[in-house]
Write a protein that binds this DNA or RNA. Structure first.
Lengths: 334, 334
DNA sequence: GTGAAAGCGCTAACAG
DNA sequence: CTGTTAGCGCTTTCAC
C-alpha cells in the first residue's frame, strides 16, 4: 500500500493462464485479440481474467514487444489556453489508438524542456510532441536519435526536426499590421509580455514591425513587461503606454489576454473604441469574442494542430511541414 | 525511424558496461548513484555514457524494480482553468522527485474515466490523481486494488478512497447564497450549464438552494443549458432568464466564465450592476477579477490542491481528507 | 568496490 | 488452435 514495491494484489498473466488452464501465450493472444484461439478458450480466459481482476502490465508488455504506446508532450505552460487546446487536440487523436500522453511543463525554459525530453525519452515513447522550433542543441541531438517520431507544433517559421505542424508565426504579425494600416491607423503602439521566453510572441512582433517598416512606419511606442502575459499585465501595460504616448490611435497586444486587459482599461476610462483607440490582439479567445465589442484578433486552429501532429506522428507519416493557416478576425475594436 | 520496433541507435546498459570495461551492475549503481563505487569507476562509466549517448530505459528499469515513477492523472477537461491549475500544482510537486505525469481527459464522462483509470493502472503508476469523488463502481474497485495511491481532488463532500484533498463544495454554494442574502437580495435567479456531467456544479447549486431554503426563500427562476460552461452560454442564459423574470435582483452563476458572460450582457444592455442586478460567480478567475467591476465570486486554492495531492500521494502519507478551504471574494457586482 | 546470475511480466517466434 | 522457450533491458541479491 505504499505505492512502491509490489502488493499482494498483483495478479500476473501466468496466474491467469494457470487459473484458466491454458498457456501464457494463449492468454496474451486473447487479451490483445491477436492471433487465433477458439471461442471456448477465449471465454475461459476472460472468465479467469475477470474473476482474478487481472490488470495487464504494460511495462512488461512494452519491454517485451519493444514498442511503447506512450506519447511524450512538452508544453511551455498549462495556464495558457493555447496549449490546453493543443493538448486537447492531441488527446483526441490518441484516444482509441490506445496511446497515453506523458505530459511535462517546461515553463518556457529551454533547459527545462531539455530535461523533460530526456526523461520522456527514457520511457521509449512512440512520439514526442513539442511547442515551437527552438530547442537546445542537446535536445535536438537526443531527438534526432531516431527512437521516437518528433512533431514540433504551432510555428513553422524555420527548419524542423521531423514533423512540423503550425502556421507562419511572423506572418500573423504582418497580417495584424496590415489590418491596422488598411484602416488608417498610423500612430501605433505595442503592449507585450516577456518576449525572451515567449519566442513566438517575439516573432509576431518582429513580423508586425516589418510590415510597418514596409509602409515606411515604425512603432510609436511600446511597453513590454518582463512577466508572463495576463489580463492584468495587459491592462497595466496599456495604462503606462498611454501615459507616455497619449496620442496613439491603435495598439497591438502580444495576445488576447493582454488585449482584454487593455479593453477593460478603456471601458473603465471611457476611452472610445475604436474611434479614439483601436485594439488588436492575438489568439481568438472565447472571452475576447464576447466582450461587448468583439476584439479584433487572429485565430489559429490550435486544437487541429495538436490533433494533426499526433495523427501524423503516430501513423508513420513521412517527415514534413504542414501549414494549417490562420484567420484574421475583424472584431469591432479595430 | 518508424516509431515502433527498435532502431539501430538504441544503446543499452550492457553496451555501456562493455565500453567502460565494467560490469552491468556497476553501471547501474553509478547511474542511480546508489551503492558504492570508486570515483575512478564513476568517471569511466560516465565517459562511456556520454560518448555512446546512452539513454536509460525506464521501462526495463521499472519492470526490474517493481516501482514506477509514473503518476496517472485524470481530469474532466483541459479547457477549464480549474483543471489546468490543478495540473500545474501537481506537476510542480512532481518535479524533482523524478515523477512523470500520464494525463488523460475524461470529458466529464464517468465511463471514459473508468477506461482511463484502467489503462493508467496498466502502467503501474505510483499514484493516481482524480477529480471529484464520483466514480463508477468498477473504477472504485480497480483503485482499491492497492497497486497505487489514490488522491481525489477538489471535493471533500463525501467518503474518499484513500487521499482526498479539496474543500466543501456544497458549502461554497451556501456561502454564496448567504452573501447575497446578507446584502438584501431576495429575488434570485440561477444561470447554469450541464449539471448532469459537472457534478460539482450541481452540488454547489444544491448548497445554494439549501441556504435559500434556510431563509425561507427559493430560487425565483433558473436557466440551465445542457452544454459545457462558457462565456457565451452565460451571456445567453442570463438573456433568457431576464426575458422570463425581468424583476430579478440577483443571479448566481454556475461559474465565473458564465458570470463574465452575464456581466458582458449587462454592459451591452446598460443594466446597472449591482443596483439593478447583482451577479455572483464561482472560481476566482483572473479575468473576472479585472473586469471594470470585479465580479463577486469564490476563490479556491486549486494549484495548492494539485500540489498537496501529489505530495501526499508520493510521500506515503496515511489515508486522510484535507480541507484546504475557500474564500468569498466580495467584488463589486454583488 | 565489483561482477555474475536470477529474475521482473510479458510477447514473439517456433513447434506441435 | 495452443503450449514451450527465449529473451526485452534493467535491478538486485549474493558472492568475491
Amino acid at each position: 500500500m505504499d505505492g512502491r514495491g509490489k502488493t499482494a494484489a498483483t495478479v500476473t498473466l501466468a496466474e491467469v493462464a494457470a487459473a484458466a488452464g491454458v498457456g501464457e501465450s494463449t492468454v496474451s493472444r486473447v487479451l490483445r485479440n491477436h492471433g487465433s484461439f477458439s471461442a471456448k478458450t477465449r471465454d475461459r480466459v476472460m472468465e479467469a481474467v475477470n474473476r482474478l481482476g487481472y490488470v495487464p502490465n504494460m511495462i512488461a508488455g512494452t519491454l517485451a514487444s519493444a514498442g511503447s504506446r506512450l506519447v511524450g508532450i512538452v508544453v511551455p505552460s498549462f495556464s495558457n489556453i493555447v496549449f490546453a487546446d493543443v493538448l486537447r487536440g492531441a488527446s483526441q487523436a490518441m484516444e482509441g489508438s490506445g496511446h497515453q500522453a506523458v505530459i511535462g511543463v517546461s515553463d518556457y525554459d529551454p533547459a527545462r524542456e531539455e530535461e523533460l525530453i530526456a526523461s520522456m525519452l527514457s520511457w521509449r515513447p512512440a512520439a514526442i510532441l513539442l511547442a515551437g522550433l527552438e530547442h537546445t542543441e542537446r535536445a535536438r541531438a537526443m531527438l534526432t536519435g531516431g527512437g521516437a517520431r518528433v512533431a514540433e507544433m504551432l510555428d513553422i517559421d524555420g527548419p524542423g526536426l521531423d514533423l512540423v505542424v503550425g502556421f507562419a508565426t511572423a506572418e500573423t504579425g504582418r497580417a495584424s499590421a496590415r489590418h491596422l494600416l488598411a484602416r488608417g491607423y498610423r500612430r501605433i503602439g505595442y503592449v507585450g509580455h516577456d518576449l525572451t521566453r515567449d519566442t513566438r510572441a517575439a516573432k509576431r512582433l518582429a513580423g508586425f514591425e516589418a510590415a510597418l517598416a514596409d509602409a515606411g512606419l515604425a512603432l510609436t511606442d511600446r511597453d513590454i513587461a518582463p512577466v508572463p502575459s495576463s489580463v492584468e499585465v495587459g491592462r497595466d501595460g496599456l495604462d503606462r503606454l498611454l501615459a507616455r504616448a497619449p496620442d496613439l490611435d491603435a495598439v497591438y497586444f502580444s495576445n488576447d489576454d493582454m488585449a482584454v486587459g487593455g479593453y477593460f482599461l478603456c471601458l473603465s476610462r471611457g476611452i472610445a473604441i475604436p474611434d479614439r483607440l483601436a485594439l488588436f490582439g492575438y489568439n481568438g479567445l472565447d472571452v475576447a469574442r464576447l466582450t461587448p465589442q468583439p476584439i479584433a484578433t487572429i485565430r489559429t486552429p490550435r486544437v487541429r494542430i495538436g490533433e494533426l501532429a499526433a495523427q501524423l506522428a503516430l501513423s508513420g507519416a513521412p517527415a514534413q511541414t504542414v501549414d494549417v493557416g490562420f484567420e484574421v478576425i475583424e472584431g469591432a475594436t479595430a
